[in-house]
Design a protein around this nucleic acid. Structure first.
Lengths: 342, 342
DNA sequence: AAATGAACCGAAAAGGCTTTCAGAAAGCTA
DNA sequence: TAGCTTTCTGAAAGCCTTTTCGGTTCATTT
């Protein structure tokens, strides 16, 4: 017995196959499957059943060729390993995924040549738009204005103000962190943060200072810039305690730094949060929940950044182009490492 | 002055535009650009220059429609946040990226319905193949045999032995970990590991036991299953030290657990690695390098798993289908937390 | 019974590319 | 000069779908 024309035969079913099986023309089959109104209900049913039998799915290539839009977007990241790209990527996938859009993922590994190569490949595939995700918040070179499709930059803004960039508001992040510590009754606040070459470090410090100034206060000592590591957190804390034993809160530039800070505080006999409150940035689950006590941290709302970028791209594809850098607010996630002074 | 027909005009250039500008037919233009031999060198040059001027890139949709293959693959992950998907994804992107293949990324969020939806969408886009990436090593439901394109499962194997799965060898991982500890002269080795519901935990424990048996030894106590967390590492270590103070090495089921183990060891006055050696699994950079001392860990070679999966998919697209579960070896990355007994 | 209108259906073109095949041009031999 | 090969070039078909528009069928009206 010859095998019935099933889903697994060499070539997937085409609309022509469906039409033949249903005994109608290709045009009618198309209309039936697409809900056009010029088909008798009974005929439509026959076509639908035929399509079902052949597990027919319309070839999106052909459809895209005709329609001029493909329902695909390119997602260009520079740093997949980094923990910043992923939530953004998820947010974007989320925002698109509900509809009929598919995402091409490309990782340029921080290499401009490779990035250029990927852009060309994506344009060849006729993506409807591009999202460019950076791994740090410092501005990055624009892809240029000559691209035939809209581009949205996420996390790392473009250096061309004519492009649209969606980034978390790091200044505000520093501000709300301090406001939380102030609300806990802390007034002698130190700031230990990361590499001053990172805009994120400088902006968070700026927000910190501004919020303190608003309250008529100042930092305990200067902001201590260093590296984004636990080791730096430990070293800086040792110095801090020697110079300013009166400190009652440490705002850390990242969760990793905070982790190191807390370790040294505990070892030196300071209780967290009773004697010293500690906060971090990024709300990196694996660090915040494993530390003792769990770490209060500022969440940068990266998934929301991704969703916003995807949404902006959508509207840009629809024709409504925006430009400039748009910032999104962050939020404080309160855990055990901060509490009101008793 | 009217704007020259540049790259940024409304519709991207087509082969027809190039041909017209070069003063040849569409067919000749195609042959010239694709290196076919039936074109005079001078003509070819003219065409290439015209294509350059218009920044023409061949429409991959049209090309794919004609060729029957699109040069795209779908990457279906169940858990983007997880740190296992990403290296695999990078390895796959790497293996493909060199050539002309683009990757569609889909995250099913562990939802079978959503997964099915994504598979259908990908097939509609006529991907040439699929890679399915799991977030744990336990077998997962097969997508079925009726798919019109080859499928390779990575990290989490399919439950259908007729599918091809590429996974790290967790039994061997346990084995080489113990061999390293034995080489360091340790003989009183304990094993603190994660959730026994995870195959990875059971397999690593199995390899551990086997390697010890080969050396005529046994674990100190039973393997201690619990959770994949620092908290469990701390709790289990406290118990362990009470019951078996003679222990000279702790093999931990994950780097997180190891981190907790080391904290308690230090607090209880045991030196690492002089008194007790500590090892983890996964080689998760942020944990291994931040701990004191830096943590020796077993790297699961996930990027290699990704590359192997991509490579297998490639050959399967070429027609050479394999099946069964193929395991890849892991490797020990030695850092400060293990050293020979002095 | 003839005419009108509505409801359906199908032929054909379009979209951009590759490939085949036949024809044109040029170079060579006898 | 006629006949042959060699080298290029271009017309056209095909990939799969959607959409337009003209044609067919059938029920209804006069």
């Amino acid at each position: 017995m010859p095998q019935a024309a099933g889903p697994s035969r060499s070539h997937p079913a085409t609309l022509g196959d469906v039409a033949r099986l249903a005994g109608v023309s290709i045009a009618t089959a198309s209309k039936a499957l697409n809900g056009r109104s010029q088909v008798r209900a009974e005929t439509r049913q026959r076509v639908i059943e035929a399509a079902e039998r052949l597990s027919f799915r319309p070839n999106q290539l052909a459809r895209g060729l005709l329609a001029g839009r493909t329902g695909t977007v390119g997602l260009l990241t520079s740093d997949l390993e980094g923990r910043f790209s992923i939530p953004i990527l998820m947010g974007a996938e989320d925002a698109f995924g509900a509809g009929e859009v598919a995402v091409f993922l490309c990782d340029a590994r921080g290499d401009a040549i490779r990035e250029q190569h990927h852009v060309r490949a994506l344009l060849g595939r006729r993506v409807d738009g591009l999202i460019v995700v950076g791994s740090r918040t410092d501005p990055r070179p624009s892809l240029g204005r000559e691209l035939p499709v809209p581009v949205v930059y996420a996390y790392a803004p473009s250096d061309d103000p004519d492009d649209l960039s969606i980034v978390p508001d790091n200044v505000d992040a520093g501000r709300i962190a301090v406001q939380h510590l102030l609300a806990c009754g802390r007034t002698r606040i130190a700031h230990i943060t990361g590499d001053p070459g990172y805009l994120a470090a400088r902006e968070r410090a700026e927000g910190t200072r501004a919020a303190l100034a608003d309250a008529g206060l100042a930092l305990v000592g200067e902001p201590r810039f260093g590296a984004w590591s636990e080791g730096w957190g430990r070293a800086a804390t040792a110095l801090l305690l020697d110079q300013h034993p009166e400190v009652d809160a440490v705002l850390c530039g990242s969760d990793q730094i905070a982790r190191g800070v807390m370790d040294v505080l505990r070892e030196r006999g300071h209780r967290v949060p009773e004697d010293v409150a500690v906060m971090g940035f990024d709300n990196w689950q694996v660090l915040t929940s494993a530390s003792r006590p769990p770490l209060t941290s500022v969440d940068m709302n990266l998934e929301q950044v991704g969703r916003a970028a995807a949404h902006a791209l959508f509207t840009a594809i629809g024709g409504a182009r925006r430009s400039g850098v748009e910032t999104l607010p962050c939020r404080v996630v309160i855990r055990g490492s901060t509490a009101p002074l008793s």
